[in-house]
Amino acid sequence: MAQAAATASALAGPRLISQRQRAWRTFRQNRTAVAGLVLIILIVAVALAAPLLAPADPTAQSIRMRLQAPSWANPLGRDDYGRDILSRVIYGTRVALQVGILSVLLGGAVGTAIGVIAGYFGGRIEAMLMRLVDILLSFPDLITGLLVVAVLGPGLGKLILAIGLTIAPRFARLAHGPTLSVKKRDFVEAARALGVGNGRILRVHILPNVLGELIVLGSLWTASAIRLEASLSFIGLGVPPPTPTWGQMIRDGTIYLTDAPLYAIGPGLALLITVLAFNLVGDGLRDVLDPRSRA
């Protein structure tokens, strides 16, 4: 019965409201996904309420107290400029969310569109788009960053653009393969035989079948994006000091792994929790979107 309904809606046009409700129900039933969502809301709250939560000014230096061990006043200790590490981790949430979410959304949307369109239409469009992807893939992260700085100059927006540019071709290649395989399947051929338009087929049949894995991966890519921020910072693409960022803190903290272990572990843990939250939600979304698991 359920399957009949799904098929009917796919052919006769989705009843959006009921679909959305059903999606939300599926998602809600997934307890881990809901836990992830709660975590994300908490993380966003931390980012917004940073000034209220942070025990100290994240940029206030006191050099004489550099690398001081954890205490009640500085639960994670002080960094190499004598700044409160906990406050910097809390404020760092802001940049982490911007870089992690925006760059993956940007790269993901553009990349997926390219991959799906290329795979579905084939022929000259495919050849052209996939060559473009190959060109973009041929630039290592660092060179892409250099390119963006050289053309646009430094800044947070450009950093997000550079990371998005790094991620997009990867999404494209990942979306491309499954599209090739999905488009040959019976239900797509059937839809085409019934004269359903290309745009509709892409939206209703191809995308949901491809998107599941991409969302899961996208949730992981937020971590890579946050880490990439640190490695791009030394070619002038990073977030300028003294703004705290997790990537930069982990990078600097590694030097003091034995003297002040929490310098790197603090932001590392924050990064882990954030990625975990995104991944839990990503897995949940995947289940909602996957037309096969609706049955």
């Binding site: 430094p154 070619i235 002038g236």
Partner: peptide
Amino acid sequence: LNVVAHAT
């Protein structure tokens, strides 16, 4: 303050 490569 902007951080750039040493050569730059």
